[in-house]
Design a protein around this nucleic acid. Sequence first.
DNA 1: CCACTGGATTGACCTGCGTCATCACGAAAG
DNA 2: CTTTCGTGATGACGCAGGTCAATCCAGTGG
Lengths: 246, 246
Amino acid sequence: MFTERFLKDKRGARLEPHERALIEAAITEIRTLAPRTTVAHAGEPLDVSTLLVEGIMSRYIDDRRGLRQLVAVHVPGDFVDLHAFPLKILDHDVATMTAATVAIVPHARLEAIMHDQPELTRKLWFSTLLDAAIHRAWLFRLGRLDAVGRVAHFLSETNARLMSAGLSDGRRFALGLTQTDLSEICGLTNVHVNRVMRQLREEQLCIFRSSLVEILDPVKLAARGQFKPDYLYLDPPSPASQESQS
Amino acid sequence: MFTERFLKDKRGARLEPHERALIEAAITEIRTLAPRTTVAHAGEPLDVSTLLVEGIMSRYIDDRRGLRQLVAVHVPGDFVDLHAFPLKILDHDVATMTAATVAIVPHARLEAIMHDQPELTRKLWFSTLLDAAIHRAWLFRLGRLDAVGRVAHFLSETNARLMSAGLSDGRRFALGLTQTDLSEICGLTNVHVNRVMRQLREEQLCIFRSSLVEILDPVKLAARGQFKPDYLYLDPPSPASQESQS
DNA sequence: CCACTGGATTGACCTGCGTCATCACGAAAG
DNA sequence: CTTTCGTGATGACGCAGGTCAATCCAGTGG
């Protein structure tokens, strides 16, 4: 079951068992990828999309001088570049951050689903719009929060998403990101991210150790980053998925 | 013909005449809206979507202290909140900036299209993903550009979009935005936007007069904002739409 | 054992942008 | 005509975060 986390507990878009089976059947290949591998380049035509099964991936835009802005971070269960199906060509690069396992779904298979399964199509569409909602939260973060707020917001968001994926207990989670990665997410320099992390540590809000993030006070951290999780469209976990809360 | 600008010259998503007729038939109402009117609130269920026929609209997120971050600006031809169809509830507010004319499309009609018209459904999906691509360009703008670059990028983008809609000749266009609006788009203060506009004026790049934007040197302005229009997915105008270039 | 490398940490210094005024101008209202 | 209000324009001043540079530490490969 490579798709068990896809659309898990997403409000109004949970997959029915037969829908899950259809996606599962659309997978033609499972691939394991090394950390820091680029899997899709801006401007190149794509005819497959990638469902992230394990690991962390990212999407980013490079500027003229080689500076990088991350536009998305993906956790297990995300259909990383499903939007490449309608768009065919991407406007950004896609890469792994950590080692990752991905499932490959050819667009031809998705085409078939679109013809026969309008309700499942709506859920796939929903999945790409959820990414767009996260984009908007990131715009808010970059446009209106100071440095500490941006980092607090990102860590709160990531905690919520990983919790939904069953990969955080709400206080600690593994995340293979460096402080430089954080700086490319939050529109800061790595030096300043370091100062922010010290402050969060001293205020007993959060400890960041690259391999492990420990949130000491989730409520205060969320408040510091004005994080409100509505845009993640999360339902309370379904009874069926309770057991994955370990 | 209220839909003539919808998906006009969008790469790989142009509407066939019969598809355009289907959308046209899905419209149940034409509404004119006063400037600065909120038409949809975050968190409220929606059962219609709004196609912008004339005027400028925006989508925005408010912070705790009432500061506002715009997450999108819409020009005629945009299906402003089509994403409300799969999502049902929005994560942000939608409002007019100028006086506007909109076409209302009930979700029930879109549902019917989804069942019968997979190819048209793909194009509707595409339209929402184009908005997401613009979100990403805005993330780049906020994360990696300085104040002058951000304004230059936004004005270059808006010029390109209005040109495609036949509402800019590439050098001058009407845009009912104040400097404060610009500041909420670019994550700056209105005071600093004013300083930026002066600089752009002095460098002979652009003159901004709220009602009228005059781009004196489109190439230099785009360079200053690192604007590359790929993410707008524009084709060269089709022969059929040439006449709208006045 | 040591050399090397990628990340984290810290300090000194500087600047772009925010903040807080104030003032000018034109449109609309009384 | 005067008042008001929204927008634009400018100046003085302060600070958050950028820049540059050095140091430290944990792997890890030889």
